[in-house]
């Protein structure tokens, strides 16, 4: 077997890019789930973000404003979800799936006018000194700004959840909403905020695909990335840094299998295509069978509707 053709440096560099959309979407979902809301509509919010971001970017000529529009689009769709599950207490699993259906339809309808349109170019940041470093330069310092935004958001979410009072409240609401309510926390509003944040980040992730990665609007541009994002949240057992690891692992295996093919390593393609999913399962089993299993448990109130009993 000849692996010499694959450069680990370039592999790591493309891994950073490949993992960004799922990282963004998963991070938003993580916050929502930490507040106790399971939103399976990530795919729908991502693709809505992909088209709103694309449309706004084309209209304004600025990818940055496009990303703002994408976040707004994703958040708007998640607001619909929030109203349904928080105030009308619909089942979260079914509502999330319905949201995906709705979002894909909405995006396709809006997107009809944007097929074949080209988005404004989103420039890569070339950090002058850092980018020229050997090995580290190409891996870490030659990406576009959204890659760094994703990394920054991981740190930010970690800091927020584990180092701030508001984050503590959000986690408390997710663990036990009745107790949190008894303590006087505004359960519904905190969850609303978390769901909207989740929608906004899913929108950003979708727009990263339609504005940077692909960059083009076509129906089905997210091609299931939202489902992967959901999987990574569970994989990461609701921890931001593990989430980063999960996104890299997943993005890395996806990229690696294509690189192995390009290097003509004789491994059956179908085995390679399955690899990301199988490895995710294996890693998950390894983590969950190890010690400290209690620390891996889902938020206590995840998926349950809250009703103030008075």
């Amino acid at each position: 077997m000849n692996l010499s053709g694959i450069s680990p440096v370039l592999l790591l560099a493309s891994l950073m890019v490949a993992s960004t959309p799922i990282l963004l979407a998963a991070l938003g979902e993580l916050v929502a789930e930490r507040s106790g809301v399971l939103n399976l509509g990530v795919e729908g919010m991502m693709i809505t973000g992909a088209i709103t971001g694309f449309a706004v970017a084309v209209a304004t000529g600025s990818p940055w404003i496009g990303f703002v529009g994408a976040a707004a689009g994703g958040a708007a769709l998640s607001l619909l979800f929030a109203v349904l599950v928080l105030w009308l207490r619909s089942n979260q699993v079914a509502t999330g799936l319905a949201l995906t259906l709705f979002g894909i339809g909405l995006a396709a309808l809006v997107g009809q006018a944007y097929v074949g349109v080209r988005a404004p170019v989103f420039a890569r940041l070339d950090l002058p000194v850092l980018g020229d470093l050997p090995i580290l330069g190409p891996i870490l310092f030659r990406h576009d700004a959204v890659v760094y935004l994703g990394l920054g958001l991981v740190a930010g979410v970690w800091w927020f959840l584990h180092r701030t009072r508001a984050g503590l409240r959000l986690r408390a609401v997710g663990e036990n909403h009745d107790a949190a309510h008894a303590l006087g926390y505004k359960v519904q509003l905190i969850r609303l905020g978390a769901v909207l944040f989740g929608g906004a980040l899913a929108g950003l992730g979708g727009a990263y695909l339609s504005l940077v990665r692909v960059p083009q609007w076509t129906q089905g541009v997210t091609a299931g990335a939202g489902w992967i994002a959901l999987a990574i949240v569970v994989f990461a057992s609701w921890r931001p840094w593990r989430l980063l690891l999960g996104a890299w692992l997943f993005g890395g295996i996806s990229v690696l299998q294509l690189n192995l093919q390009a290097a003509r390593v004789p491994i059956p393609v179908e085995v390679l295509s399955m690899a990301p999913y199988v490895v995710t399962i294996l890693v998950l089993v390894l983590i969950s069978s190890g010690r400290g299993r209690a620390a891996l448990a889902a938020p206590g109130s995840l998926g349950q509707p809250f009703h103030a009993a008075r």
């Binding site: 694959i6 450069s7 592999l11 493309s14 695909l209 091609a223 294509l258 390009a262």
Partner: peptide, 26 residues
């Protein structure tokens, strides 16, 4: 250099495939 994507249409995967080829000197 052939990469079998096992899809007719998956923009992100196609981008990754192109990237992998470019890194192989294609």
């Amino acid at each position: 250099v052939v990469i079998w994507a096992y899809t007719w249409f998956d923009p992100a995967k196609e981008a990754d495939a192109a990237q992998a080829m470019i890194e192989q000197g294609v």
